[in-house]
Simulated scan of single mutants.
Amino acid sequence: MLAGSELLVPLALLAAGIVALYAGAELLVAGAGRLALGIGLRAATVGVTVIAFATTAPELFVAITGVFDDSTDIGLGTVLGSNIANIGLVLGVSALIKPLSVSEIAMKRHVPFMVLAAVLLVGVGLDGVISRLEGALFVVVLAGFTAYLVYSTNADSASMGDKPAAGDGIALTDIAFVLVGLIALVVGSRWLVEGGTELLREFGFSELFIALTVLAVGTSLPELAASAIGAARGETEFAIGNVVGSNIYNVLAVLGIVALITPIQIATSTIQFEFPALIVFTLVLVAMMRYGRTLTRLDGIALVAGYAGFVYFLAQ
Rank of each mutant, 00 (worst) to 15 (best):
M1W: 12
G4K: 10
A12L: 15
V19W: 11
A20H: 02
L21K: 04
A23I: 04
G24N: 03
L27C: 09
L27G: 04
L28Y: 09
G33Y: 02
L35I: 15
G38W: 05
A43G: 13
A44L: 09
T45G: 05
A52Q: 07
F61E: 02
T65W: 04
V67F: 08
F68Y: 14
F68E: 05
D69S: 13
T72C: 00
L76F: 03
T78R: 00
G81Q: 08
N83H: 02
A85C: 05
N86Q: 07
N86P: 08
N86F: 02
G88Q: 00
G88R: 02
L89N: 07
I97V: 14
K98T: 07
P99E: 02
V102N: 03
E104W: 09
I105G: 04
M107Y: 03
V111R: 04
F113V: 10
V115Y: 03
V115L: 14
A118I: 02
L126F: 10
V129G: 05
S131N: 01
S131D: 08
A136Q: 08
A136I: 13
V139H: 06
V140F: 11
L142Q: 01
L142Y: 03
T146P: 11
V150Y: 07
Y151W: 14
Y151D: 12
T153H: 06
T153M: 09
T153Q: 13
S157E: 15
S159C: 05
M160R: 15
M160T: 12
L172T: 14
T173V: 13
T173Q: 11
F177W: 13
F177Q: 07
V178D: 12
L192H: 06
E194S: 15
E194N: 11
T197V: 11
E198Y: 10
F205K: 15
F209N: 14
A211G: 07
L212C: 13
T213E: 07
G218E: 04
A225I: 13
A225G: 11
A228F: 08
I229K: 14
G230N: 06
A232H: 10
A232N: 09
R233Q: 10
E235L: 08
N242P: 08
V243L: 05
V251P: 00
L255M: 02
I257Y: 00
T262E: 04
T262M: 01
P263I: 00
I266K: 03
I266Q: 01
S269N: 11
I271M: 13
I271A: 13
F273D: 06
A277T: 12
V280M: 06
L283K: 05
M289Q: 09
R290Q: 11
T294P: 01
T296R: 07
L298W: 12
D299V: 00
F310I: 13
L314S: 15
